[in-house]
Amino acid sequence: MSRKLRLGLYALLCVLCVPFVFPTWWMVTSSVKPISDIFAFPPALVPSRFDFSTYGRVFELQPFGQQYLNSLYIAAVVTAGTMAVAAMAGYAFARIRFPGQNVLFLVVLVGLLIPSEVTIVPLFQMFHTAGLTDTHWPLILVPILGAPSVLATFIMRQFFITLPGELEEAARVDGLGRFGTFFRVALPLSRSALGAVAIFTFLHSWNLYLEPIVFLSTPSKFTLPQALTQFVDAYGSPLWNVQLSAATMTALPILVVFVLAQRQFIEGLAHTGLKG
């Protein structure tokens, strides 16, 4: 590659990444700006003075630590559960022939097509009658078994379909049954697709907004996106710098984990990748 082209590519990348980086930068720096700086024009790239007191207020106004744990554990359980459900269903739909397969797959696919706004009222009624509102159960059960997991199943099916057919034959020669083939051969091969599913699922659960608002009513049970909207004064006006501090705290650790684990995240995904 010529030097000129190389420089051009770097310049292009640098310009392109501005809208990706600037908002996060603004969020992090504004969280320690005095409130008048937040409204300054042109926006200050670096705070005129640093004010970390807002970070303390985040914890005073809300049981923020508890809410953080809630979000983390719900996302973890949902991710693990979805990976299991989706891997099984995806494998079966891709590699096993059974009567009604196509119809059942279509039935499952319906879940892919439903925005959560559509079914929230009936779901709320069902969980309410089961006495499970204001618990984390709806936020765990619905994503693992309901509409959100369908995307995961779909990804897994698309992956398993690309595995060569000799795989099963070889496994059978080795004396493995269907389950054995699934657990010992197919599943280990699908690490990358499972990685993609894990990222998708974790982020989906982590970002869930409408459902927690509808299902949860006790602050100590809240999840983070819901908590973010609670940093307001008694009349509903946002406490901007506190809100931005809380937002920063929800984003930064994930960003750091991602940067550290990015090899596993993306490269692992890429090398054994969802092959074309």
């Binding site: 989706a86 269903a89 079966a92 739909f93 059942l104 879940g111 693992i144 078994l145 997991s149």
Partner: peptide
Amino acid sequence: LISPQLVGSALFV
């Protein structure tokens, strides 16, 4: 293998 997903779909979708 598809039963959890299927039951989930029936119930929650």
